[in-house]
Amino acid sequence: MANELELSGNQYKDTFLAGLWRENPVFRLLLGMCPTLAVTTALKPALTMGYSVIFVLLCSNIVVSLMRNLLKPHLRILMFTLTIATFVTIVDIFLKAFQPEMSAMLGPYVPLIIVNCIIICRAEVCASKNGLGVSIIDALGMGIGFTLALSVLGAIREIFSTGKIFEIQIMPDWFVPCAAMAMPAGAFITLGMLLGLVNLISKRKS
């Protein structure tokens, strides 16, 4: 009995850590690219997007996991999208109410969480096959992994495009801000470079 508990404890830890690095949704699985690129002009919108995704992922994983035994195979995807769209609408309303500035900045990228592949992929791969506990842990791991990736990208782009972070000047005076980093081109190139870096690090490790 004790052994079993320990095993499941390990399993939880493993599931959680997988989302952070080994199966990081952005760097490893290449999922959810659209918000990753669009909202990372600065750190703050990146973080806002991050916790919105964590919330939606958590709720949808819980709901899907609870009704996994009732799902009909051909209505499965429809059910997932319905669940996700509902929670995204709720997030959108909350953002409009409590963070109007961020809501205006993120604009249509908040509703676009609906088609963020991460959420539907986790619902399909994890929540529809596993119990409540694993689903929650998985959602947290994946969500935090996604937020981390977004923050790294957002921080790099904010520093290079304005020399500031959280609107506080950190770069010395001689630094010339590079506006291209805040443009679409900067997003693509930074993410490409980061992916290369992640490949390099994981190769060194093994």
């Binding site: 081109a185 490409g192 992916l195």
Partner: peptide, 8 residues
């Protein structure tokens, strides 16, 4: 990665 850089 190279695809993204090209897209950039």
């Amino acid at each position: 990665p190279i695809t993204l850089i090209t897209a950039g």
